[in-house]
Design a protein around this nucleic acid. Structure first.
Length: 280
DNA sequence: ACTGGCTCCTGAGGGC
DNA sequence: TGCCCTCAGGAGCCAG
């Protein structure tokens, strides 16, 4: 489920209540996530103070004074604050009891999420090492915005690639954070057909696509993400970007721009949506 | 090196 | 009501 905006919504909703606090106890009810929760994690995390809560791609990075928890929400993961004593749901796989008694609870029916521990710099972890660039500019040491995806970069990465452009922008080794929803949305906003071969798209059109990726993700973050079914942030708030989706999930409905019919295609086993009239 | 396909897992929704 | 099928926001891994 969660793409970058949903992970960012989760990060922001957790930040104030988690950073600066000590983890008093860790309860693991189900270790079998995407990878088993390391047996050493509870002991490593217990007693540690959370010093920062960051994000790289769709990974949440819970930094402590002794190491970092690397967490991924997979397709169906979410965090929420529970009142102490609230009985867990079947799919509530672990709790962190924070000093003062707050319970941070992880829920994940499909168990595609992950909870890992590293005592080394997390960017050196094998899951993060080979990741592509962040799509949105980030603040540098001096506080000014730097980086983010641009047309020049996508154009260079796409030369001689025959995959659909949608798959290119969803490839985390190139640019991270763009999932199935926002890939369709960004292609629509840029007027690019998602199934067009990545290597046959001009530099000018990649400029538009990069702009569309940044704009789409940014406004989705501002809307708290997209809730299709059950996503919510740690404060229980759903993402309102669903009401702003131009094409995703709208097969057969009219295009808001040209009035044509939104179509659905399938590539790599997953649906994408586009307007035949607006996208070339 | 690229590419597409499979895989993990539960639950919701549609057709009959 | 129930049963069976398809599909769902990710992404690592593998064979060709």
């Amino acid at each position: 489920m969660p793409e970058l905006p949903e992970v960012e919504a989760t990060r922001r909703s957790l930040f104030e209540r988690l950073v600066g606090r000590r983890i008093e106890r860790v309860v693991v009810r189900e270790r079998r996530l995407r990878w088993p929760i390391p047996t050493r994690l509870p002991r490593a995390l217990t007693g540690r103070v959370v010093c920062d809560l960051g994000r790289r791609a769709k990974y949440l990075l819970v930094r402590t004074d002794a190491g970092t928890v690397i967490s991924h929400l997979g397709m169906s993961g979410s965090f929420s604050w529970a009142d102490p004593g609230t009985p867990p749901d079947v799919h509530d796989h672990f709790d962190w009891i924070v000093e003062g008694g707050d319970v941070l609870r992880y829920h994940d029916p499909r168990r595609f999420g992950a909870l890992l521990w590293t005592s080394r710099p997390p960017e050196e972890h094998r899951l993060l090492r080979a990741l592509g660039i962040e799509p949105l500019p980030t603040a540098d040491a001096a506080g000014s915005a730097t980086g983010g995806v641009d047309g020049e970069y996508l154009y260079a990465k796409s030369r001689s690639r025959r995959i659909p452009v949608r798959n290119l922008i969803m490839d985390g080794r190139i640019v991270v954070g763009v999932g199935n929803i926002y890939a369709s949305e960004a292609c629509f906003q840029a007027g690019v057909r998602p199934d067009r071969a990545a290597g046959r798209i001009s530099r000018a059109r990649y400029d538009r696509l990069a702009d569309a990726i940044r704009a789409t993700l940014q406004s989705a973050i501002e809307a708290g993400g997209t809730t299709l079914r059950d996503f919510h942030d740690a404060g229980g708030r759903t993402g309102e970007f669903r009401h702003r989706l131009a094409v995703y999930g709208r097969e057969g409905e009219p295009c808001h721009r040209c009035g044509g019919t939104v179509r659905r295609g399938v590539a790599s086993g997953r649906s994408y949506y586009y307007c035949h009239g607006c996208q070339r």
